[in-house]
Amino acid sequence: MRADLEIINEWIAPGSRVLDLGCGEGELLAHLTSEKQVTGYGLEIDHDNLTACIENGVNVIEKDIDDGLTSIGNASFDTVVMTQALQSMHRPDLIVDEMLRIGRECIVTFPNFAHWRARGYLAFRGKMPVSKFLPYTWYNTPNIHFCTFKDFEQLCVDRNIEILERTVVDHQHRHHWWIKLWPNMLGEIAIYRITR
């Protein structure tokens, strides 16, 4: 399993109800369903991913998250997960609000735009950072709302969101002791567990 999913897996209680926003091929849900008796649904718009979920026996709903989640009831899930998609939302703040409305807890992961490599790219080349991990150019990137760990934590303060847990890792989702020294400079991906 993908390393970030391993970390998320540990944060999800057995038997809980899970909604995975942008669930890809349903790897996390398939694992949670078989190992933790979780009832879960994925939301997905990519056609190939959707078919893969169906073939894998994962509950998947074709739905564009940007259209809103209003049809899903308040507190109807124990955990709402969104991995590496927050930065591609039209209004990440509203999505986080919605996630916290429908879920008791949320798990969010996103890339840190203040990582030293991104900072260096912009500082020295004067161009928007392009990397193997984030390979898009500014005009075709789906990632339209980049933020940093500090930015996200500011949003949490402004919106009264409680951060229950945070893990900061490199782009391969590995832990390193030195990331903890200066996460907003050295960490590439953050995994937050939040509630309200």
């Binding site: 649904y41 169906i54 509950n59 739905k63």
Partner: peptide, 13 residues
């Protein structure tokens, strides 16, 4: 939506 609210297994395309 009704199926999800009832906690049933469903996929939708």
């Amino acid at each position: 939506d009704g199926l999800i609210a009832a906690g049933k297994s469903v996929s939708y395309a």
